[in-house]
Design a protein around this nucleic acid. Structure first.
Ligand SMILES: [Mg+2]
Ligand SMILES: [Mg+2]
Lengths: 259, 259
DNA sequence: CCAAGAGTG
DNA sequence: CCACTCTTG
């Protein structure tokens, strides 16, 4: 019995597997967040092997996990067993990435709606804007290569700065930013925000904040099947004990209504 | 008696006053080059006080010199006494420059032609592209603020990369690159070329070459008064004795016919 | 994973 | 004054 038959939720979160400090405590906090929010689809970035057994234990009963790799750090997708039927998964490395980044995708039916789910952790840091723009362009191309009958949600830690998006000609006309179309809520803008998140060792006076993590939707045609209704941050609470956040990034959680 | 009554020549040269090695020997070589080429107008970048008396001695009899500053390093203009009547000089600092850069200009009659002469040493290094683009935009604005009856030549060490020019919308329609309109001669493209110029101490394997130094013209209206006919590099010969070049940049020399 | 700056080849 | 890497705040 689905208590929310008309609602679909998708979470994306960079869970900072590169920080070995409290890695298992933080991973457990991420899992508990997922089991509390119960999104249908989860995109994870910076998943590392050290987290595998924790995710197996906490999320394994409810979610199927697809990993883009098995060494270093990588993306992963969790698909809720109750509501998602996955028919195909794919990983396409960005061959010019210097950081081992890739585009991970899945064909799935989510509460009966045919969807293409795509995530990535695009090239990091301002210095690598050129490579990142190539990757984003490739990702948008992948979005639009999906069959028209499918609703496509693409997102992840895109490490994106707005001028970079402008430089590649802004968003394709048929792709929408879920934070934007749900009202551009200021409280949900900055997904990596060192004025609020002190997980990183940071001795600089300047506290940067960026909207690195984003989710996009391309609707199915001719009939739109999902209506974006809400976009929120998650992972905002400190873990009791270590007093750290689950990650240096907040998670982003998008809510849709079936229409 | 002017041996070339229908010819005007303008030289621009970054003479590397920041390299104290052989500074006076190199300055003298620059002066000798000027006295040999006898351009009507000279734009200099990286002029330093240590060169003043050398320029006074060698070029002082033939050229009037206007400096944009008197400390650190700065631009200077030499105007040939025989052929140029200067009525106004101006220096406008770029207030967001972190390197003390400025736009230096002069109103002058060159062989009877009313001209606005503008030079600058735009913000250096790839890292400072944003500031450099602002400065270039301001320079083009200054070019087009000159009265239509005047022929404007603007140029110097612009430290420019082609994508930066593209990023600010390319050249204004009425401004022409003198290297381009004289045939884009490959031999005259790279004005800072570490495959040919070893003045800098350089231990890297990669030898960069860039077209940092550029000259632009905006014609007078309704009647064009100067026709660009040739564009060449100068300062290509080593100085006997120290075996170094006068500067790490080549000079750029543009030739015009009065029409 | 910010922005500056320093050091290397 | 290149590109890259590293350190520092
Ligand atoms: Mg990270
Ligand atoms: Mg220099």
């Amino acid at each position: 019995m689905d208590p929310e038959p008309h609602r679909i939720r998708i979470l994306s979160w960079n869970i900072d597997g590169l920080d070995m400090g409290n890695i298992r405590t933080r991973a457990k906090a991420v899992c508990e967040n997922i089991m509390r929010e119960t999104p249908d689809v989860v995109f994870l970035q910076e998943f590392v092997t050290e987290m595998s057994d924790i995710f197996d234990k906490h999320c394994g009963p409810s979610y199927e996990r697809f990993q883009a790799a098995s060494d270093a750090y990588y993306t992963a997708m969790l698909l809720k067993k109750q509501t998602v039927k996955c028919t195909e998964t794919k990983v396409v490395p960005f061959y010019t990435s210097r950081m081992g980044r890739a585009l991970q995708s899945a064909q799935a039916e989510v509460k009966g709606i045919p969807m293409t789910l795509i995530t990535s952790h695009l090239e990091s840091t301002k210095d690598h804007a050129e490579e990142r723009k190539r990757q984003l362009t490739a990702a948008f191309r992948a979005v639009n290569e999906a069959e028209g009958s499918r609703t496509v949600v693409f997102g992840g830690d895109l490490n994106l700065r707005d001028p970079e998006l402008a430089a590649i000609g802004s968003l394709p006309d048929n792709i929408y930013d879920l934070w934007e179309v749900t009202g551009k809520r200021k409280e949900a803008a900055f997904t990596w925000d060192l004025t609020r998140n002190d997980n990183l060792e940071w001795q600089a006076r300047f506290r940067p904040k960026c909207r690195f993590d984003r989710l996009y939707i391309r609707h199915s045609t001719p009939r739109t099947q999902l209506k974006p209704v809400y976009f929120e941050l998650t992972g905002l609470e400190r873990i009791p004990g270590c007093r750290r956040f689950p990650s240096d990034h907040w998670g982003i959680l998008a809510h849709f209504d079936k229409v």
